[in-house]
Design a protein around this nucleic acid. Structure first.
Length: 423
RNA sequence: GGAGAGGUGGCCGAGUGGUCUAAGGCGCACGCCUGGAAAGUGUGUAUACUUCAAAAGGGUAUCGAGGGUUCGAAUCCCUCUCUCUCCGCCA
């Protein structure tokens, strides 16, 4: 949620920035300013009204104590009139506040300075690429065929017990999952992150805090009986740990890492994008989250990008980093780097991580603040990134490392897997 | 699932209709005291909105949430919610 003050002070600038995200904000910004004026006018009237009523009430107390019941009755009538007016003012104030809030949560986050205007993934800017694209032997196949051949991931069994998008990992496939999770967590801890294990279900307030609710609730699984949502990413519970807090600058930065299963309905996806491990309803991910002072967040974004880069290097995967254009960025993000690995048998880049700076967008929703030198409350900045999401890493590892005699496991993982080849 | 007890400031905890502008304690900040520290001692210490050019100051709201009674509610009534204890079930 954007800060009201920003919109109030620079409405045209806000509209201009949102244009980079191809979002026409002029009508909504106009609405917000209109509601703001009415809200403040009404609040002023109501406050004056209540101040008068409060004062009269106090006088009645004294009059009763002094035994002057007659004068007290007179005042009572006066207060009754004030109350009547107050009720009407209160109702109006509430409707203005609601109108303003509803308009405010419709606005996406403003893109940061380096973000370019663009309409789709085509317009994203490749800022880095490294690692040799492997040349596979003749007869190399996509990962879903490999999974089948070596019996390590069973998509059919998942269909049987749950449905499409819920694969079953088996034998060395299961072991590889566990190895990757441990490797990613250990690397996070080495980089100074504190490990957490969050709940996999969250309440509505948490969904709102990180920006999944309202409006994107059709992307989350919902547990009807208890009004809980299955998390689409550990970002949601881990960031919301700090909801409604005022932190001390000395506590910052907060650096957390968490493994969790992630659940996504992925409504509307289809085709080759969803084949095999490319898009799942349930998958595993290690997530890094940072909370920083405002002047640190852009450097922190680069630091997090470096961390993820290091992981991809150690896994010996060819990868590239793209800076998302305005049109491809998420609702809540101010800037996002996508990390993509090359999947040699599918001959395409697969997104395995998204590292974003949300600046104050989430913290404003969560009321996550700190005290500055003057003792004023200010919003903190939140960031997060996948480090890393498993399925597409597994897809790339399987495809890129396949040989005629089996699938080679990268050196760095072998102490975790306990084996060097899948055959 | 059943029964009961609770939710008060950063924390603990008092408060059953008007001086609550929330006692007291702990913690924290800044002083005093001290050679330095501890102890002692003094002062200060919630959030949001709003008013104001700004600062100072002021106003309104907030004692889990929402509604109600009343001139007046932390306090009385209703609904919801969360926590704890016991029973049941159970990894």
């Amino acid at each position: 949620m954007l800060e009201l003050q920003t919109i109030r002070e620079n409405p045209d600038w806000v509209i201009g920035r949102l244009n980079i995200k191809n979002f026409d904000a002029s009508a909504i910004v106009g609405q917000i300013l209109e509601f703001d004026k009415m809200r403040r006018d009404t609040k002023n009237k109501l406050d004056q009204n209540m101040a008068e009523a409060n004062q009269l009430s106090k006088q009645i107390g004294f009059l009763f104590q002094a035994g002057k019941a007659g004068e007290a009755t007179e005042l009572k009538n006066k207060i009754a009139q004030l109350k009547l007016a107050a009720k009407e003012l209160e109702d109006r104030l509430a409707s203005y506040e609601e109108g303003q809030f509803k308009a405010l949560v419709k606005l996406p986050n403003l893109p940061g300075n380096p973000v370019r205007k663009g309409f789709s993934a085509e317009d994203n800017e490749v800022v880095h690429q490294e690692g040799a694209i492997p040349e596979l032997y003749k007869g190399a196949v996509p990962h879903w065929d490999l999974c089948n051949r070596y019996g390590i991931i069973d998509f059919e069994l998942g269909n049987k017990i749950t449905g499409a998008g819920f694969p079953v990992y088996r034998g060395k496939g299961a072991r590889l999952q566990r190895a990757l999770i441990n490797f990613f967590l250990d690397e996070g801890i080495k980089a100074g992150y504190l490990e957490y294990q969050p709940p996999l279900l969250v309440n509505e307030a948490s969904g709102f805090g990180t920006g999944q609710l309202p409006d994107k609730d059709d992307q989350m699984y919902f547990v009807n009986l208890d009004n809980l949502y299955l998390i689409p990413t550990a970002e949601v519970p881990i960031t919301n740990l700090y909801r409604n807090l005022i932190l001390k600058p000395a506590d910052l930065p907060i650096k957390n890492v968490a493994y969790s299963s992630c659940f996504r309905r992925e409504a509307g996806s289809y085709g080759k994008d969803v084949r095999g491990l490319n898009r799942l309803h349930q998958f595993d991910k290690v997530e890094i989250v940072q909370i920083t002072l405002p002047d640190r967040s852009w450097d922190t974004l680069e630091e997090m990008r470096e961390h993820v880069t290091g992981l991809l290097r150690k896994l010996e995967l060819p990868f590239r980093i793209v800076r998302l254009c305005g049109g491809d960025m998420s609702f809540a993000s101010a800037m996002t780097y996508d990390m993509e690995v090359y999947s040699a048998a599918q001959e395409r880049w697969l997104e395995v991580s998204s590292v974003s700076n949300f600046v104050t967008f989430q913290s404003n929703r969560m009321k996550l603040r700190y005290k500055d030198e003057e003792g004023k409350s200010r919003l903190l900045h939140t960031l997060n990134g996948s480090a890393l999401a498993l399925p597409r890493i597994v897809a790339a590892l399987l495809e890129n490392n396949q040989t005629e005699t089996g699938i080679r496991i990268p050196e760095v993982l072998q102490s975790y897997t306990g084996f060097g080849i899948i055959d």
